[in-house]
Design a binder for these strands. Structure first.
Lengths: 219, 219
DNA sequence: AACCTTCGTGATAGCCTCTAACTAAATCTG
DNA sequence: CAGATTTAGTTAGAGGCTATCACGAAGGTT
C-alpha cells in the first residue's frame, strides 16, 4: 500500500512482503481489533518463523504506526474523492456520508484512528500532516456554507484560539461548525461502531442523518 | 468497592483482598490503559506470586468485567448525586457537568465504559441494567425540558422504535434529545480524552459548554 | 569467482495467562 | 479438643507473546 517506488528487485521483493504483512495485519485487526494483533501469528500465516518479520518492521509498534498511517491516508483519500465527486466541490453532506461509509466498512480501522489511544504513543509528524489535510477539507466545506445566525460565544473564543486553522481563511463561525461536525458525527459513529446502540431498536443511520441535517440547517 | 455484605472472617478477608486487587488494577489502568493490565504485575505489587490471584478472579477477563461493572456503577452514582443535588431534580446541565468531571477525572475509566470495545466481549446482564438506569436518568431530565420546535423526522422514527425506552413516559422529542445529548457530549469528551484536541489551541471545555448550551436551547 | 548485503533460521531471554499438584493454615464439626 | 475439610498460597510448567542474537543460506554486485 503506497510503497511502489521500487527499483531493484530486492526493493520490489521487500515492498511486496511488507505489503503482505500489512494485509494479514489488517485481517487480524478487522476480526479481533488492534490489541489482538500478533506478529507471531502473522509470521505463521505466511509460512515464516517469528523473528523473520523483524527484517521488515522494527517491532509491533512500528507495524501499528504504519497501519495507522495507512488508515489516515485511506480516510483522507476517501474524503477527497467524495468532495471531488460532489458538484459543489466542498460539500458537508458528501463528507459526512463518505465518513460514515468508511467507518462502518471496517470499524476497527476507524477505532485505530479515532478510538482509545495507547497512553505512551505519540503519532509521528507525517500523520499529523495527513490529519491536517482532513481538517482542511472539512474547513473548506464549512466555509462554503452560509452562516446567518448570531455568533455563539464559542465562536468568539475560536477567533483568538485558531492555531489549528492557521492560514485557513475560514471565519470563526466556520471553525465552530467544523469542530461540531467532527465531534457530533464522531459521537454517533463511535457509539454505533462500538455496539452501544445494539438492541436499542432504533436505526443509527437515521440518527446520523438527523445530526447531519441539523448541522446543515443551523448557524 | 461494594462487596461489603460479608459475615464470616473468611469472607471479610476475601472481599478485602479482592478490593485490594481491584485497587492496584485501577492504578495500572489509570496510568497505562486497560490493555496494559497485568495480573502478574498486580500479584508482585501485593507481594504474592502470580497464580495466587486466580483464587480471587477466574482470569483477566473476569477482573476487567468487574472493573467495567464498577465503572458503570461509579458513573451511575455520580449522575444520581448530580441530579439529587440539583434543585430542579432532573437537570440536563447538572448531568452534563457531572459526566464531564467524571470522564476527565480518569479518562481510561471512561474508555473502559465508552471506548473501543473488545470484539468478542459481551457485557453481562447486570451491567446493562446499570446502563439502563443511566439512560432512565437522562430520559427523566429530557422529559422535564420543554419541546417547542417542530418534530424532526427522526423523532417520528423513534415513536415506533423505542424499545430502549420501554415503559418510560418520555415523548419522542425527549427520546431524540436524550440520544443527541449522549452522542454529542460523548463526541467531545472522547476526542478530548483521547488527546485529539491537543495542540489545536482551543479550550475543549468551551466547546463542551457550547454543545450543552445548544442542547438546552434547541427543540 | 569472490564478495558483500540481505533474508530466514533456531536458540534464548523475559514477559504474559492460566492449570495442576502440593503444602500450610484456618475453619468447621463431632 | 481433635480430626476432617475447606481455603490460601506456593512452585512447576505448558503455551503464548515480543524481541535480540548468532549463524547459515541465499541473492545481487564487481
Amino acid at each position: 500500500m503506497a510503497e511502489s517506488g521500487a527499483k531493484t528487485p530486492r526493493e520490489r521483493y521487500r515492498a511486496q512482503v511488507r505489503a503482505e504483512i500489512k494485509q494479514h495485519a489488517w485481517e487480524q485487526i478487522a476480526t479481533a481489533g488492534a490489541s489482538a494483533l500478533s506478529l507471531n501469528a502473522i509470521a505463521k500465516q505466511m509460512g515464516l518463523s517469528g523473528p523473520a518479520l523483524y527484517r521488515y518492521f522494527a517491532g509491533r509498534d512500528e507495524l501499528i504506526t504504519e497501519l495507522v498511517r495507512d488508515a489516515y491516508r485511506s480516510l483522507a483519500d476517501t474524503l477527497r474523492m467524495a468532495t471531488e465527486a460532489s458538484k459543489s466541490g466542498a460539500d458537508i453532506a458528501a463528507l459526512a456520508h463518505a465518513l460514515r461509509d468508511w467507518a462502518l466498512e471496517d470499524p476497527n480501522r476507524y477505532f485505530l484512528v479515532y478510538g482509545t489511544p495507547v497512553p505512551g504513543y505519540h503519532a509521528p509528524d507525517d500523520i499529523t500532516v495527513i490529519a491536517d489535510g482532513i481538517m482542511r477539507m472539512l474547513l473548506d466545506a464549512c466555509t462554503a456554507l452560509p452562516s446567518d445566525g448570531p455568533a455563539a460565544p464559542f465562536a468568539e473564543h475560536l477567533q483568538e484560539h485558531r492555531r489549528w486553522a492557521e492560514g485557513h481563511p475560514a471565519p470563526p463561525a466556520a471553525l465552530h461548525r467544523a469542530l461540531v461536525f467532527w465531534t457530533r458525527l464522531h459521537g454517533v459513529l463511535s457509539l454505533e461502531a462500538a455496539g452501544h446502540f445494539a438492541g436499542m431498536g432504533f436505526d443509527p443511520g437515521q440518527l446520523y442523518a438527523a445530526e447531519l441535517d441539523d448541522l446543515r440547517r443551523q448557524p
